[in-house]
Design a protein around this nucleic acid. Structure first.
Lengths: 344, 344
DNA sequence: CGGAGTCAATGAACCGGTTCATCAAAAGTC
DNA sequence: GACTTTTGATGAACCGGTTCATTGACTCCG
């Protein structure tokens, strides 16, 4: 059937009403399961709908209702493998509740974040889950405060007015660092991502907390920030291992950067575990199946996705809830062969 | 500013028109860059918009225009890491063209696929990119043929009327199999996913083609279909290696299944390369950085995403193009240490 | 039996844009 | 200078649902 003719002959509430011999308002009531319709009419209307092959136009519903049943998710970059778990679970919860997920990537740029917020607003999106490249950015904060729909932050914590779901990166980094210190390491290098964002910031805090608890002052030359890609991790690792006094342990604290780090060590012929201890900031098949397997920090991203969607749904429902609720999922350290006692 | 009061005082075209002292039609023209507006009025209207903080309501536009500027992407399961690359690139191309991406997962079930098509239609989605669990499924085919918007298939090839973007899995599998045969292997086990879907089907074809070219008849006990998760791969590998006459080479031809396979081999203390040769159906950090590194098939998923989005955009534009265009990206074999000559 | 109250059903108005028939003014033509 | 054509601007009608004031029928109660 050619689409042109279909379009012109789509069935509307009026047609259903005529077919069933009722008013359009009654058809609308049936569509929305309004109780004030007699069983008989309800059946008749449903029969007419089935007979004519009627389908509601969600656009028209949205326009009148002022809500779209769309929820947007904007994250830095959704080719981060484990992050897909978050999205998957969130989508499942949202779809269950009748919402459809809109996806966009911010590429970690404030300007994109702001323009996306505008696009979501123009689409009358009912709720937003997102990360932010810089929580202190003036224009971003302004755009957030002007947004008419609820916004939930993913792994960000600095904007008190907004709900958020975070992982306890501070704790994870503290565990990892203490573990390495307990093995005798003193020269521990750390690779983190954008220090303006909560995850890297709190990992750094955890690292420093563990160091100072052990009475150690970290060597600033061993701390590398802004490691945002696997290539960055490669370069940072190569640079660290070329120092006159290289680290004895490497804490690759950013997500999904382990590959670049291991690649550099392999290129330089440095044995993991033996030549240098390695701890990864997030778990993966790679960490688990590497030789030796890599000690890693782990947390439940699927649960984060579920919680995020659930909290956002509550907020969209307009329940009277205090502003800026936070939920934190715990992190844990999985100790494997890549972290070894310091030789001699 | 409380959101309730905002909602009631949103600025509309009427307000802009009044402020600028023009008709609503003129405001609409300015919004849509219609040429028949004098520079002076255009400026005045834009000034009024800026002054009042006007923002179009995309919902209202969609309703009148009959199109939503939404494109839906539905795939089996978007926690397949490398697949995220496809989505990322597709989203970038679509956003550039003014479209927003809707995301949903089909969980590989025909019923879900059909219901999603309904949901997309009700939302007046302008185009769809999707995978299918079973291209021969009657109800799915019917739902596809009744869809009023263009649909592009991702890595599926059986529905002639629809555009498609595929990878040359047949070639990849042929290369991998020939490589193993060339190393002397005769008992080659193969793990594939759902044989009803194009990727697994064509991988199997490539495998058989390579075997028969070498005059070899594959042992059916070594062919395991329906390996859909890492756990399935674990079980299949364990079962294969427990055979009285186990394979000497393992072709893990499904995407992202390598982890489960390697886990099983490690549990059973079978050395990769030495005890058994392994070839992976898709590349990954794990394949590259494993000891020994894993020979793998590789193709450009980012390019697939770009092509898919571009082809769909052309189709949505209504260009007069022949139906059912297909684009295939090549596959190649990256030979690494996990595939070794058969001992003795 | 009359009046209040309940309930189902009605259909016009509305949501916020776009479209298009219509018109006035300016430009072009002879 | 009169007539045609072009161009810019107008605003009512429309897209396809939902909402709500109104109506008519029926129930309840004194």
């Amino acid at each position: 059937m050619p689409s042109r003719s279909r379009r012109s002959q789509t069935v509307k509430v009026r047609d259903v009403a005529r077919e069933a011999g009722v008013a359009v308002g009654t058809v609308s009531r049936v569509l929305n399961d309004h109780p004030a319709v007699t069983r008989e009419l309800r059946e008749r209307v449903k029969g007419a709908m089935a007979h004519l092959g009627y389908e509601v136009d969600v656009t028209a519903q949205s326009m009148r209702a002022g809500r779209s049943r769309l929820v947007a998710c904007a994250i830095r970059d959704f080719d981060i493998p484990r992050f897909a778990l978050f999205i998957k679970e969130a989508e499942a919860v949202l779809r269950e509740a009748g919402y459809t997920l809109l996806l966009a990537s911010t590429t970690n740029r404030p300007a994109v974040e702001i323009s996306l917020l505008g696009a979501f607003r123009r689409r009358r999106v009912d709720g937003v889950m997102m990360t932010l490249s810089d929580e202190e950015h003036r224009d971003v904060r302004e755009a957030l405060s002007e947004a008419p729909m609820p916004i939930l932050l993913i792994d960000r914590d600095r904007i008190e007015a907004l709900d958020r779901v975070t992982a306890d990166h501070r704790q994870g980094a503290r565990l990892a660092t203490s573990h390495l210190l307990g093995l005798g390491h003193r020269r521990i290098a750390m690779l983190v991502g954008d220090i303006k964002a909560f995850p890297s910031r709190s990992r750094m805090e955890g690292f420093r907390a563990a160091c100072s608890a052990a009475g150690i002052t970290p060597d600033p030359r061993l701390l590398r920030e802004n490691v945002l890609s696997s290539e960055d991790a490669y370069r940072a690792t190569a640079s660290l291992m070329s120092l006159a006094n290289p680290p004895t342990a490497l804490f690759v604290a950013a997500m999904d950067m382990l590959g670049g780090c291991l690649r550099a060590l392999r290129t330089m012929n440095i044995a993991v575990g033996d030549g240098i201890s390695v701890v990864a900031g997030s778990d993966s098949d790679l960490a688990e199946l590497h030789t030796p397997p890599i000690t890693a920090i782990e947390w439940d991203l699927a649960a984060m996705g579920r919680h995020a969607a659930t909290m956002l749904l509550e907020r969209m429902r307009g329940d009277e809830i205090e502003r800026g609720r936070g939920l934190t999922v715990p992190t844990q350290l999985i100790i494997r062969g890549s972290s070894q006692p310091l030789a001699n």
